[in-house]
Design a protein around this nucleic acid. Sequence first.
DNA 1: AATTATAGCAACCAAATGGTTGCTTAAAAA
DNA 2: TTTTTAAGCAACCATTTGGTTGCTATAATT
Lengths: 108, 108
Amino acid sequence: MQSRINKIFKAIADPTRREIFHVLVLATTALSITQIAGQFNISRQGITKHIMLLHDAGMLEIESIGREKYCQANLSALNEIRDWLAFYDKFWDESLKNLQDFLDTKNS
Amino acid sequence: MQSRINKIFKAIADPTRREIFHVLVLATTALSITQIAGQFNISRQGITKHIMLLHDAGMLEIESIGREKYCQANLSALNEIRDWLAFYDKFWDESLKNLQDFLDTKNS
DNA sequence: AATTATAGCAACCAAATGGTTGCTTAAAAA
DNA sequence: TTTTTAAGCAACCATTTGGTTGCTATAATT
C-alpha cells in the first residue's frame, strides 16, 4: 500500500487537482461533484476521478446527501506536507553556515 | 512551459526522487551520479533521469568536475512549497472557527 | 407515473512516466 | 598508450495517468 504522504504528493502533483482543492478551500459551502465539474473544462467523470484521488489522500471530505455528494477541502491534510518539510529545517542552518564560511574566506 | 511550483510538485511526487533528494541533503559532501546510483537498486541511467528532473525543478545543483558531475541538494527550493502552503494559512482560522461553532452547538 | 438530474461503472484511448539495455564519448588511471 | 571509469544518447518497454464516451442506477421534480 501507498503511504499517506505519497498519496498526498501524488494528489497535488497534478495542477487540475490543486485547482479543485483550491476551489474547495475558497468555497464557503461544500460543493457537489457537478458543481465542481462546472468550474472546469473537463467531463464530470474526469473530475470524479480527481476527486476520488484527493479523497483517498485525505485532502477532502465527502458527504452524501440524497443523490448528491458534497465535497469539502480538508486543510489539515496539508500538515503532512509541513511535517515533511520540517525535517529539512535543521539542515537549513548548516547551509547558511556554509555560505557564511564562504563569505568569511573571501574577506580574509 | 511548466511553472516552477508544478515542476517541484512533480519532482517530489515520486518516492525515489524524494529519496535521492533526502540522500543529498544528508550527505556532507556533493555526490557524483554513480555515487548516488550506488545507493539505489536502479540503473545509473534511471537515476540520471531522476536527477535531471530534480535539477530541472531547481531542487539540486550540478557541478561538472572532469568527467564527473557532482550533485548537491538545493534546500531553498523547498521555500516554493512553503509559499504554496502559506496561502492556505488564512483559511485555518475559519476552519477552526467552524469547529468551535460546532462544539458550541453541541454544548448548548 | 413520467421525466430529469446526479452520480457510478466500465471500457477505452493517447500520452506521460519510470524503468531498462546497448552503444558512444571522453576523462583518468595503469 | 591502453584500459578503466563516468556519463550521455537513444531506442525500447510496460504501467500509470488523465482524459473520454456510453450506459446504468437512483433520487428529485413535474
